[in-house]
Nucleic acid binder design. Sequence first.
DNA 1: TATGAATGAGATTTCATTCAT
DNA 2: AATGAATGAAATCTCATTCAT
Lengths: 193, 193, 193, 193
Amino acid sequence: MNKTKKDALLQAAKELFGEFGYVETTFKKISERAGVALGLLTHHYGNKEKLFLAAGLDVLEQFLAVLRAATKDAPDGYSAAIAFCRAYLDFSIDKNSNWLVLVRCSPYSDMKTKTDRDQMNEMFEAVPKVLEAELIRGMADGSVRQLNPTDTAQVIISLMVGSNRTRVLTPYASPKLYAEAVDFVSRSIQAVK
Amino acid sequence: MNKTKKDALLQAAKELFGEFGYVETTFKKISERAGVALGLLTHHYGNKEKLFLAAGLDVLEQFLAVLRAATKDAPDGYSAAIAFCRAYLDFSIDKNSNWLVLVRCSPYSDMKTKTDRDQMNEMFEAVPKVLEAELIRGMADGSVRQLNPTDTAQVIISLMVGSNRTRVLTPYASPKLYAEAVDFVSRSIQAVK
Amino acid sequence: MNKTKKDALLQAAKELFGEFGYVETTFKKISERAGVALGLLTHHYGNKEKLFLAAGLDVLEQFLAVLRAATKDAPDGYSAAIAFCRAYLDFSIDKNSNWLVLVRCSPYSDMKTKTDRDQMNEMFEAVPKVLEAELIRGMADGSVRQLNPTDTAQVIISLMVGSNRTRVLTPYASPKLYAEAVDFVSRSIQAVK
Amino acid sequence: MNKTKKDALLQAAKELFGEFGYVETTFKKISERAGVALGLLTHHYGNKEKLFLAAGLDVLEQFLAVLRAATKDAPDGYSAAIAFCRAYLDFSIDKNSNWLVLVRCSPYSDMKTKTDRDQMNEMFEAVPKVLEAELIRGMADGSVRQLNPTDTAQVIISLMVGSNRTRVLTPYASPKLYAEAVDFVSRSIQAVK
DNA sequence: TATGAATGAGATTTCATTCAT
DNA sequence: AATGAATGAAATCTCATTCAT
């Protein structure tokens, strides 16, 4: 399918950063997995951090697309919020999503270049915005109880973040954790009749 | 005040691992901040990972003590659970708690030595146990609605984990995030009359 | 206008070698400043050292032309020698002469290819020859005192070399240095009545 | 004689920087010639530039000592100035002086760290000061003609610099160059009766 | 217990040069 | 003539760990 070597590098980077984290992922590992020469990495991406950023942004972009698609067709705000949570959690365990790049590499907050960090933060902030819009819709259509939408969105995202970490980083996560998390959200935002 | 050099090393380690993360914290930095000789580090702690483990366990131990103290005198299970959340979040922003060691260094999941990893996991698992006991008490005394206590505890902890990360690692956290998180928990577990 | 890409490369090379020295001047920098493709460099000049040689020879050629023009119309040998010195020093601070290529890049003496080094040395040797001829004229016409013309020419050139380096490479050069250097030469060669 | 490995590194650095110049002198070459481990270089000197600075300062220090010793016992200012020139030129061809470090490595003017550059410049400026003092003495004692001492010192140093470069860097230097240079200075500064 | 010099493997990055298009 | 992706050797620098004192 005519994949360029540049693409191969990005793909290898997404896989390896997710598997091994930022520091344990070396130029050697990346170029070997991508099947290209070592020097091509800096040739195409400048340096390790820029490649890391590219990898993260790529995953985040697909993530946002999935979240938007998931909420698009929901009949009301409440259903959309719940669909959002399900899509979030599904994406986070999809073998092909390379989600781990975003999880394992807190270094996004350690990025040395301010511009890179800002670019990443900007995209990350888009996530709660999607949810917030649905909460507002839900309060308007009566499916969600009256709450501060910004803060509530942030709390829900926090719950997603935490559940996901518990599931993928610890050995003791309950198999029902994801389902419970969604229920928890549901109980907490659904309008009471 | 009679602090041994060994203690000084541990203190410096806790600070630096929290500030810079595992890899960016070097033997040189630690020994310099502690004001002791470089060689003393391996002499007392064996290697970097062991020191890291010691630092993490130390913080975790104090954390557990705080959580237990906070729930001890609550009049009912529901109040205890809420007190637990408040104590968790307070500890996480206490300047002197060195909490960041636990946050910034997911590497606990990357620990090369299985024994070390297990020791850490064991202590981490004690956290939801404390909460779970209170949820059970709450269901018995009627202050908490009927839920699966294990799963619910894990969800609540996940929310704490996520809120905390949002607060300490991102630049866009709402100032009301912690308060909202506690409300969220409250709405979700409090027994309905 | 109508400058070929080959010329643009040479011009960029002269500027950059002078600004940054040999090693810090890269193919990338040159091709970028010239606004041409990277590959064109080896295509036209073979390799870095050949390009460097071309740049140096180009500047040296213009330098010699200037020196010859300056001495041409002098009424006597003494005046010609002084005119030579003035022209040397003026050229060395002319913004458009790219003189720095010759100063900053002692690597001419490091050139790996013997042929290149010889070619460069040959042209460099032409400089004292010009002055020597004028000194001989001066001794004949009575304007210059009796001295060994070859050695004296070399000493005068050495003074030019040193004054120039002091002026362009150090921060403490006296503003009158060039004028003093010329006076110094004058005192030392002018025939005493 | 109990030479430390740190000293061995400095000695190897002085030799190699002089022989090969800054860039062609690698960590590998230095540590091999010094017979020590590669990492010791950064351990003791921090980085390549710092080592280069240390090497240069070391040579410069000995150079200044030699110049001061040479002028100390001269009977008058004129003799001192001439002794200064002889000492300068002798030092520059003394096999053991490692003078080439200072000649081959114009990079002193390219030093990235401002502090390093300043430190070097400061010491370099001490050289003309020594000569200037003797010129002033000579004008007072009647052995040197009346001239601006600062400017004249700088011109003489420039002549030393240039003669030295001609001798050590070019293949066409006259064997009498040094002697002629001293004569040149003599003619130019000696008081006329 | 305490010190810090010493080691060397390994990481990132640079860059002249080649080559297919 | 012109392009720029691709290569890989080599350079600098980092750092956990060892060890003699």
